[in-house]
Design a protein around this nucleic acid. Structure first.
Lengths: 183, 183
DNA sequence: CCCACATGAGACAGTCTTGTCTCATTCAGG
DNA sequence: CCTGAATGAGACAAGACTGTCTCATGTGGG
């Protein structure tokens, strides 16, 4: 009887990732509930997107926690981080493009904390000598978001195998396309 | 008097990149013309997007031509390609996300040719031993689109300097974040 | 100078989406 | 079994956007 708010958000995220302009009615159907019930739980489309944003922020923070990005070699930390974020990639892909629409409005402060943590990880890698210094931490953070989104879409459309997701993203971000010289 | 169709498409691309849901009225105002005139030149929103898609395809093909991707080392070809695509990055960023909406509809065949050329470039790099083989050409192609879009947004929001655009994208795609051992 | 043509401004109906409301139904717990 | 709360279905008005139309303007070419 009682609607599972979490499950509604999950299916909404899955749908909106595929079709960002889906109507409230489509979101409701995707969640297997009526539009009226959807409105009872989320005051409107804005509230729904805000709730998805909160969910995304919470998952990112959980991933940061789980990956322990301040421990060990930065490269390994990045790999752990990508692996921890994989389940959230589709949601982040939606939020990443949705954020482009928030023209003037200030964005949720949660993102600032997450961006700071990402940036700090890349900065730490540069300081330790692991990472090159000609690519700014801000750009590496941006690229991580972009690659996660690209990866989520590529998987959704069958262009990349789901099992390769973590490897493709982490290794491209870390090592790039060029072949390494054998040591 | 006569409206410059090209200039209208340019300003539409610039606006839609920032705000993908802009109305026909906003697009018209951004181009400095009335909504009626915009409708006289593009039958509707669909036609406008199609025209933008054609423009994007034409620019990609021009960039491929200019970069001569079948000549010289693959890595250098990728650098030339990114440099040639830089002016189109914002438009591509819009089309990249817009394509996510074309659920069922078949996509323009032009993209297939462009994807094929990109993929062939990465495949050539793998064959020559320049590129690693654990990242598939399809994923590298996807990542190139994603990084171009991320770069365009990062520049638009001031998180990356416009002058660094080409370097940031090409070098991340090729070399990744890890520092190379000195030879 | 004059005319044809492109444009701007605005009106208009049609459609889609939203947000709210009502009412009947169903389900769980007492 | 009974009651209350949550849900589904549907109606409804309001608003936004679209696509089309008309009419006045003014501008460039003949």
């Amino acid at each position: 009887m009682a609607v599972d708010r979490e499950q509604v958000l999950r299916s909404a995220a899955a749908l909106l990732t595929r079709k960002a302009t889906a109507t409230m009615d489509e979101v409701a159907r995707a969640a297997g509930i009526s539009r009226a019930t959807l409105h009872r739980h989320f005051a409107g489309r804005d509230a729904l997107v805000r709730a998805l944003e909160s969910l995304g922020i919470a998952e990112c923070e959980a991933a940061l926690e789980e990956a322990r990005t301040d421990e060990g070699p930065a490269a390994e930390a990045v790999r752990r981080l990508v692996r921890a974020m994989e389940p959230s990639a589709a949601l982040l892909a939606f939020l990443y493009t949705e954020n482009q629409l928030f023209e003037g409005e200030e964005q949720n402060e949660g993102w600032a904390r997450i961006d700071a943590a990402f940036t700090e990880l890349f900065r730490r890698g540069q300081e330790s000598g692991e990472f090159r210094i000609d690519l700014t931490p801000a750009w590496l953070t941006e690229a991580l978001y972009g690659l996660l989104a690209s990866g989520a879409w590529a998987v959704a459309e069958g262009r990349v195998a789901r099992n390769d997701f973590t490897h493709m993203i982490a290794e491209l971000l870390l090592g790039g396309a060029l072949r390494r010289e054998e040591p």
